[in-house]
């Protein structure tokens, strides 16, 4: 490859594009430290006049922010754990076992992807309320414990594991379930990490369902807490930015660490 000649004008154009892309985040970071007078100054001030932490304090005074954080972590982790666990079991059966009705089960799982969850949200709410789970953690978690997307993602990792490995384990006396634990999972850790991350980020930003199924302040997850903060802070932008910053930073850190896996999972599931 003749990589010596780099395209400088294009680099500049792309850097301008990148600046536009990060501008909202930069604005958020700067504004989290602004004072009320900075915010209402005209023309708008881009830099805070002093770096003060009052807005962060205000967030904790206005809303039980840590509680929202804990709710988000708890629900997202449970959902991810169940979703990935259930998917691993199903993917193992569908890739490495022979049984009648396999194609039917696979088609069944796939067909569920054709019905977006937004379409079935009303009957799902109906079912959850009949189960008495409205306004509970169970109600937030339950509808998300199975995802055809995650199952198919894990299937795509499991098919790459050679059958010889399994046969060898069987000769060593491994049963069906031991093979899953000793062969399949250790040989696809990077794939399972990818699925876990993908699933977690999806649950972390979940908005519509938690909004519908909870109305108690105690059960709010971060996105719901942020939405209500708009009213509760009576549109005090600088406080909203402090809360947003605290919500976004962990996500961006996780993203920057695991960027490779995330991109891989997108391209894997995106292109078939």
């Amino acid at each position: 490859m003749e990589s010596n000649k780099k395209n400088v004008p294009l680099t500049i154009i792309m850097c301008i594009g990148a600046l536009i892309m990060v501008f909202p985040f930069v604005w958020m970071c700067l504004s989290a430290f602004k004072t009320v007078s900075d915010v209402y100054a005209y023309p708008p001030k881009w830099l805070p006049s002093a770096w003060n932490l009052d807005n962060f304090k205000a967030v904790f005074d206005m809303i039980p922010f840590w509680r929202y954080y804990a709710n988000s972590i708890f629900t997202a982790c449970t959902q991810t754990f169940l979703q990935v666990g259930i998917s691993i079991l199903a993917a193992y059966a569908l890739t490495k076992l022979r049984f009648p009705g396999m194609n039917f089960v696979y088609g069944f799982i796939q067909s569920s992807m054709f019905v977006p969850t937004v379409v079935t949200i009303i009957p799902t709410f109906f079912i959850i309320s009949k189960m008495g789970l409205v306004n509970t953690y169970g109600g937030i978690i339950l509808p998300q414990i199975m995802s055809a997307f995650t199952t198919i993602l894990i299937i795509s990792f499991f098919v790459t594991i050679p059958n010889d490995l399994l046969d060898a384990a069987k000769i060593d006396g491994c049963g069906t379930f031991k093979c899953l634990w000793k062969v399949m999972i250790p040989n696809s850790t990077s794939g399972i990490t990818t699925a876990t991350l993908f699933s977690f980020l999806g649950h972390w930003k979940a908005y519509q369902w938690p909004l519908i199924v909870t109305n108690s302040t105690k059960l709010r997850t971060l996105p719901i807490g942020l939405k209500y903060l708009v009213q509760e802070s009576s549109s005090e932008y600088q406080v909203m930015m402090a809360a947003t910053l605290m919500t976004v930073v962990p996500v961006l850190i996780v993203y920057s660490i695991y960027e490779k896996q995330l991109v891989k999972s997108i391209t894997l599931t995106g292109i078939k």
Partner: peptide, 26 residues
């Protein structure tokens, strides 16, 4: 990395930032 970063950020969080961007006064 930069171009992809908004995708992983929760929509609600981003919406709050843009709510300010769209403020006609400030």
């Amino acid at each position: 990395t930069v171009f992809f970063s908004p995708v992983v950020t929760p929509v609600v969080a981003c919406s709050l930032i843009w709510l300010w961007f769209y403020d006609p006064g400030i």
